[in-house]
Computed example of a mutant assay.
Amino acid sequence: MAAGGFCKLPNGTVVVALNLPSPTADAVAAVRVLVLAQNRARALTRLRNLGLRAVYLRGNAEPPTPDEITAVLHHPDGLIWRTAPDNAVPTVSTVPELWRPIRSLLRRPAPQP
């Protein structure tokens, strides 16, 4: 299960935002994933097809912000991520982290010799 939300756009498409635990063993604890799709079910299916099997959207507690919607609309794949902001810990830098394509999150690191 994941915290997140969605926003229906005027053209009928939906932007779904989810906070998920990182699928890799990196130091990244959680990621915020944005998906652009025709509806919520298709957005979740896109994530499940990438290997994120236990992804569900219950409610609309954390819908995407206008900046997040703009970011996913301007990405050719319509599927992006970045580390989830931790609201409990104030950050020193005010510069937000850049959005990355989902391929960079799911890419397997090369085995170490």
Rank of each mutant, 00 (worst) to 15 (best):
Arg46Gln: 15
Ile80Phe: 01
Ala88Ile: 03
Pro10Ser: 08
Asn19Lys: 10
Arg58Ile: 13
Thr24Lys: 08
Arg40Ala: 05
Pro101Tyr: 08
Asn39Thr: 02
Lys8His: 07
Ala30Gly: 02
Leu18Glu: 06
Leu20Cys: 09
Val15Met: 02
Arg42His: 11
Pro66Ile: 05
Val55Lys: 01
Asp77Pro: 00
Gly51Phe: 09
Thr70Pro: 00
Pro85Asp: 12
Arg42Thr: 01
Arg58Thr: 12
Pro111Ala: 15
Tyr56Ile: 00
Met1Pro: 10
Thr13Asn: 13
Gly59Asn: 04
Ile102Gln: 04
Pro113Gly: 14
Pro10Met: 02
Ala110Phe: 09
Val89Ile: 14
Asn11Met: 03
Glu62Trp: 05
Asp86Met: 05
Ala88Lys: 09
Asp86Val: 04
Arg107Met: 13
Phe6Trp: 14
Ile102Met: 15
Ile69Trp: 02
Asn11Lys: 08
Ala88Pro: 00
His74Val: 01
Ala43Leu: 09
Ala17Gln: 14
Ala88Ser: 15
Arg46Ile: 02
Ala61Gln: 12
Ile80Asp: 04
Ala2Ser: 15
Arg107Val: 09
His74Pro: 00
Gly12His: 03
Thr13Asp: 14
Val14Leu: 02
Thr65Gln: 11
Glu97Phe: 01
Arg107Gly: 07
Arg108Leu: 14
His75Phe: 03
Ala110Gly: 03
Ala110Ile: 07
Met1Asp: 08
Ser104Met: 09
Thr65Glu: 13
Val95Lys: 10
Val95Leu: 12
Asp86Ile: 02
Pro76Ser: 14
